[in-house]
């Protein structure tokens, strides 16, 4: 990894069109300003991690996976008394509200 020291007000260039400027440093936080073409997608790293994780999670949902999940969770899935209305599927839409 390329390591570079910069102070507030200084900037660096990535390629021809992307400029990243250090706007402010206070304590553990750094405020950055980024100039880049609109076509360049800029996201926080943790947002990208969550995007990827959500896509993988959505793909993983299928009847077989749900069954193995329930089998893998005997402790969590242990039968607990269900409120009467949870027996009726139509009544159980509002989790937490019921």
């Amino acid at each position: 990894m390329l390591v570079m020291r910069r102070r507030a007000g200084e900037s660096l260039l990535v390629g021809e069109n992307i400029e990243i400027q250090v706007l402010q440093v206070s304590g553990a936080r750094v405020k950055l300003g980024i100039n880049a073409p609109a076509s360049v997608v800029i996201v926080r790293r943790e947002v990208q991690i969550t995007q990827n994780e959500n896509r993988t999670a959505a793909r993983s949902v299928n009847p077989g996976a749900i069954e193995s999940l329930l089998n893998a969770l005997p402790a969590l899935a242990a039968p607990t008394p269900e409120p009467e209305k949870c027996q009726d599927f139509d009544e159980s839409h509002n989790l937490g509200l019921s």
Binding site: T50, R55, A77, T80, E82, Q87, L95
Partner: peptide
């Protein structure tokens, strides 16, 4: 994240797939 266009969801639960 990853599904920015999905604005409405319904939460469902079933006794046989608790929790």
């Amino acid at each position: 994240p990853g599904f920015e266009q999905e604005r409405y969801f319904v939460f469902l639960n079933r006794p046989d797939s608790h929790p």
